[in-house]
Design a protein around this nucleic acid. Structure first.
Length: 501
DNA sequence: ATAGGGTTAG
């Protein structure tokens, strides 16, 4: 093993055969010691700089910024050459303390006056810093400059620059140029590069470019990357302005390319289609899934079931629900809730109640959602008696009533003109800080006026105005018509109203 | 091997 004498400018960092330029075990101990002392010195000086604010020691190497001159002085004092590590430290310190103006001189020095092969990691660090600090041009410039630091850029730097460019819409146009120039820099584009690009494109919701890029990959002879396909599918499904037609085209094209979707892909596209109100398309996908031999799980079924409910496809709903059982899947609360909702939508509350009873036998506990669905259906059907029962049962069974439970029940009572009971429930709600919909308030006030409960109506109005609620036209009209001129509004009623403007 | 992905409300 060759040891380099300290006096000579031995380029011991020149990378020939190994990735890491410097192994502490292979340098002479005193050399190593000197370097360590120099670094120590540099760190100490940096700390002092931080604590003494603007004060800078006399040892300044004048044409250079403070940290660079400290670096050079420190190493000179120990009679050794500055190490990449020292530069890394300086650069990190400069970025962390926002002394960006001092970075270019450091880089110039590194480029022109040092001889070692600069580790790519230092440049990667700075490129990332520039990119994240909104200095994309600096990042790009530094990327192109990498070879001048006697460093062979790899796909790491390329991927980094690309991902930085992809973060900003107006930087996207630089991507092709970077890709072209990177070829001249002898950087081998890898699958990872495509992945970076596609991920970035998905993140900024340029799904069109992302799929184009996927096609490029395939044209370039890379195999179809299932992870990328999945990524595109899932981003696609998160897009707000994506139509189901477009999504299905991408899906179909990918399948043509040989993509074999996994459970998650099916779940994503099905969820998307159902949300778009395309229950039947979702059902198609579910059938594809079965044909592909991928057993849909209870989640997929639940989503498609809800799509059937939304489209009023009750025959298909029943068939699908049966299919779940036939395939040996166990429906859970979600599944039951969707199915029960379907029955309620068909005004078949009795059947819904039977299902709830069977859930309990199957030890699948109904939850608030189940109960709210039932409550809503019973109220719509005008069966307040059963609705009350359900509400009581919720109490026994430890199913907590939530805001919606109260709102549903209150609307049911008001709808049936049960003003007394409605007021009791309203009181209970307000104590729990659950507020009815404003239209419910209006209905209650209207109803009170109709029943001649003028003072109660006035009192309620005052109370709710104090809670920042504005009665609607219907409530005002009722109040004014019924009460003539002897209205007992307190001043606070009106000042409360005014204050809301 | 595991979790997470899914439900109601005018």
């Amino acid at each position: 093993m060759v040891r380099h004498p300290l006096s000579k400018r031995a380029n011991k960092y020149l990378r020939k055969f190994k990735k890491w330029p410097h192994s502490p075990y292979k340098t002479s101990w005193h050399h190593n010691f000197g370097e360590q002392q120099a670094i120590q010195n540099l760190k100490q000086a940096t700390l002092e700089m931080g604590s003494s604010q603007q004060h800078q020691p006399q040892t300044r190497n004048l044409p250079y910024p403070f940290l660079l001159s400290t670096l050079l002085d420190s190493f000179k004092a120990y009679n050794c050459d500055p190490t990449p590590k020292a530069y890394y430290f300086v650069i990190k310190t400069l970025t962390n303390t926002s002394q960006l103006q001092d970075i270019p001189p450091v880089l110039d020095h590194l480029e022109h006056l040092e001889k070692f092969e600069t580790p790519e990691s230092i440049l990667v660090y700075l490129i990332r810093f520039y990119g994240l600090a909104d200095r994309v041009q600096d990042a790009v410039d530094l990327f192109f400059r990498i070879p001048r630091f006697r460093c062979t850029p790899t796909v790491c730097s390329l991927n980094l620059v690309l991902s930085l460019l992809c973060r900003k819409k107006d930087c996207l146009k630089m991507v092709p140029e970077i890709l072209l120039k990177s070829q001249h820099m002898n950087i081998r584009v890898e699958e990872s590069t495509f992945r970076v690009l596609i991920k970035a494109l998905c993140r900024i919701k340029r799904l069109g470019y992302a799929t184009e890029m996927l096609n490029c990959m395939i044209e370039d002879g890379y195999g179809l990357d299932e992870t990328i396909c999945s990524l595109i599918i899932s981003s696609l499904c998160e897009q707000k302005d994506m139509t189901s037609v477009e999504a299905l085209v991408v899906w179909r094209d990918m399948r043509k390319l040989g993509f074999c979707p996994g459970v998650m892909d099916y779940t994503n596209i099905i969820r998307f289609l159902v949300k778009e109100g395309k229950g039947m398309d979702a059902l198609d996908i579910l059938n594809q899934q079965k044909q592909d031999g991928i057993k849909p799980d209870v989640v997929c079924y639940t989503m498609v079931l809800s799509g059937m409910v939304a489209e009023g496809e009750y025959v298909k709903l029943d068939a699908l629900f049966d299919e779940i059982l036939v395939f040996g899947l166990v429906p859970d609360v979600y599944t039951y809730n969707v199915y029960i909702n379907g029955l309620c939508k068909q005004n078949n509350v009795d059947e819904a109640l039977k299902i709830v009873a069977s859930m309990e036998e199957l030890e699948c506990k109904p939850n608030v959602v189940t109960c709210n669905t039932l409550l809503g259906a019973l109220c719509v059907a005008g069966d307040l008696g059963k609705a009350r029962e359900v509400m009581k049962e919720m109490g026994w069974k430890g199913v907590g009533l939530n805001l919606h439970s109260y709102r549903i029940m209150l609307d049911g009572l008001v709808g049936k003109g049960e003003i007394g009971e409605a007021c009791v429930l309203l009181q209970e709600m307000l104590e729990k800080c659950f507020f009815p919909r404003s239209s419910t308030f209006d209905n209650i006030i209207f109803l009170m006026c109709q029943k001649g409960l003028i003072s109660e109506a006035t009192e309620l109005t005052n109370k709710i105005v104090a809670k920042s609620f504005v009665p609607g036209a219907r409530a005002w009209e009722a109040l004014l018509l019924k009460s003539g001129s002897k209205l007992g509004y307190s001043e606070s009623t009106f000042s409360g109203l005014l204050a809301q403007n």
